Computed example of a mutant assay.
Amino acid sequence: MINSKKTRLTMFAASMVAAAALTGCFNDKSADAAPGVTSFGNGVAQGAVVGAECVYTNNAGASLTPANEPVVTGEDGTAPVSIVGLSAADFPIIIACTGGNYYDEALDTFVSNSGNTMESMIPSLDALAQVGNSVGVNTLTDMATKLFKKVPAAERTGAASLASFKEIIRVIAPGLGLNGGELNLLGASTPIKNGAPVLADNAAGKLAVYLAGLANVAASRPQPFSAADLTKELSLAVTNGTTIAPSVTADILQKTKAYATAKATAVTSVQSDNAGAGGTASTPDSTGATGGTGGTGGTGGSGGTV
């Protein structure tokens, strides 16, 4: 991979923790460097992902080489990372995590994620700091990243990145945008790696419950159909501008609430959430504006309904 030759900074992640709230320190050696720490909580797919390898690309499309390459998720689904040579111009940064084994909450067991890649992104250093230097990579961030990639390359700003997260929240799960907005989707979920998870009623816990709901939606499809298959289906719908049926988003919410109840989690706030609007995710512009969304219902004939 190409090692960035820009202004130098070192980003050190602290030790991996199951709660995915990591902190670190930095050494800023230049005037325009963007100091910070990036680390991952959820890794690939639904629950905790063990052994997924993550790579990074800057806003110009160049690969970034972590000092601790390769970056591979550990037993709790998180991975520390240290990237040297970042500047503010490198953001938004795209993250892609591939392979490993992920915990499927519907099956209550780890399954292979071989050959599957999930994406996420870091809009800016400020956004990174606001989520405690811990970024999630999951089904919903993959959809948001696919939407962001529809923005013309010259217009892929931090505002457009944040707006992409916000748009996926609107379409799929508006409850995830409460008390924190799109940053609730950017931040890592609490990794689930067993059938009796301990989840707090906060942004990380609530996101984990929604990801479990998605796993249960996948399990309800005719088999064999996996959580990875559902990720591909939803992300392809976003990429192609295909309508996501409201029945799908209602099913996600229903199974999310059922999971929270069945596992007796502390995430009670999900019970008052409403289903997402469905429809077509609107591509943002460089300012983060997505334009009118009221007319998206008529796009179903262009590619079918997910």
Rank of each mutant, 00 (worst) to 15 (best):
M1D: 12
K5Q: 09
L9I: 14
M11Q: 13
A18Y: 05
L22R: 13
L22Y: 09
C25P: 00
N27M: 12
D28I: 10
K29P: 00
A31G: 12
A33F: 01
G36E: 04
V37D: 09
T38W: 12
N42C: 07
N42W: 02
A48P: 09
A48L: 07
V50W: 04
V50P: 01
E53F: 00
E53R: 14
C54M: 14
C54L: 15
Y56F: 15
T57L: 07
N58W: 09
N59M: 03
G61H: 08
A67N: 13
E69L: 08
V71F: 09
G77E: 01
G77C: 06
I83G: 10
I83V: 15
V84T: 11
L86N: 02
S87W: 00
A88L: 06
A89V: 08
I94V: 14
A96T: 06
A96F: 01
N101I: 03
Y102G: 12
E105Y: 01
E105V: 10
L107P: 00
L107W: 00
D108Q: 13
G115L: 08
G115T: 07
N116Q: 11
E119W: 12
M121Y: 08
P123F: 02
S124M: 05
L128T: 04
V131H: 07
G132H: 10
L140M: 15
T141E: 07
T141L: 07
D142L: 01
L147F: 06
A153M: 07
A154K: 15
R156Q: 15
S161K: 00
L162C: 03
S164D: 08
F165Q: 10
I168Y: 05
I168N: 07
V171C: 10
I172M: 15
A173I: 01
A173F: 08
P174Y: 05
P174W: 07
G177A: 10
N179K: 14
G181R: 07
L183H: 14
N184Y: 10
N184T: 02
L186C: 04
S189N: 11
T190S: 13
K193D: 06
K193P: 00
G195I: 02
P197Q: 06
V198M: 09
A200T: 02
A200R: 10
D201E: 04
N202T: 03
A203V: 05
G205W: 06
G205Y: 05
K206N: 12
A212Y: 02
G213R: 04
V217P: 07
S220C: 06
Q223I: 00
P224N: 13
F225C: 06
A227M: 09
A228H: 03
D229S: 15
L230S: 04
K232D: 11
A237I: 01
V238F: 08
N240I: 00
G241P: 06
T242E: 09
T243W: 06
I244S: 06
A250N: 12
D251I: 00
D251G: 05
Q254S: 15
T256N: 04
K257C: 10
T261Q: 14
A262W: 01
Q271W: 01
S272L: 09
A275E: 05
A275G: 05
G276N: 01
G276D: 02
G276A: 10
T280L: 13
T280D: 03
T280H: 07
T280Y: 12
S282W: 00
T283S: 11
D285P: 12
S286Q: 13
G294Y: 11
G294N: 13
G295I: 02
G297H: 06
G298P: 01
T299R: 15
G301C: 09
G303I: 02
T305Q: 14
